[in-house]
Amino acid sequence: MTTAPEQAPLIEVRDIVKHFGSVIALSGVSLKVSAGEVLCLLGDNGAGKSTLIKTLSGCHKPSSGEFLVEGRPVAFSSPRDALDAGIATVYQDLAMIPLMSITRNFFMGREPIRGFGLLKWIDFDLAHAVTRDEMHRIGIDIRDPHQAVGTLSGGERQCVAIARAVYFGAKVLILDEPTSALGVAQTSMVLKYINLVRAKGLGVIFITHNVRHAYAVGDRFTVLNRGKTLGTYAKSGIAMDELQNLMAGGKELQAVSEELGGTV
């Protein structure tokens, strides 16, 4: 990135708190992502990972806490604001509309337009071509960009969401369990993508339950537990099995692992 100031992280949050009525989903979480860095966000089910990234991508407003983008405080009022700030997200539920075509989903909210004044129309030639190319790059040959997303397999759908975020993410890419439904080839493609995106100087926040995937691409790891940050570790400062124990609360996992013959 040429525009980002050297020191200021792309995204920084301090003591973010998020309540849903009486539910406290986040109770003081801090993290930062710099340009050219992959931050893995780890933690159990219900730890608050999705809630945290939804706050970063403008879906939720934090109840309290600081949120800085490139050193400046921001208050996104909608995901559109976050997208305009260059933050693109693959949501856990993918944010796809089954009845709409692949192309329409790919460009939803960011349609390429032609024409002038009141007479503006979507440039569907461009949109179809981009969709096809981007999906091809992630290793999926889509048969027909007019096809409804509802007819795609779960993994293919996930790939559309990832390709879309990579295409539109200008500064920060946030991936919430992007590989949960993917095959081996597509998973390695996504990990390769994350590498590529980092090399281009973007910041990446990568949520996964797979410690191998995390360790393969992550530079730093932030572990969440019950809405709090357990800690942030640099890759050099933590080994893979240590990380795995942290993610799942240590001993219990070891016991299960032994029961199953040490394969977990």
Binding site: S57, C59, S78, P79, R80, L83, T89, Y91, D93, L94, A95, M96, I97, P98, L99, M100, R104, F107, M108, G109, R110, E111, I113, K120, W121, I122, F124
Partner: peptide, 28 residues
């Protein structure tokens, strides 16, 4: 024309198909 060829048309389909997904993708 508006429904099939314009941005607003795409937003209409999106808003009706799944308002949450549409919102998360930046549709007003």
């Amino acid at each position: 024309y508006v429904l099939l060829r314009t941005r607003f048309g795409n937003w209409i389909f999106a808003a009706g198909g799944d308002p949450n997904a549409a919102r998360n993708s930046g549709v007003p």
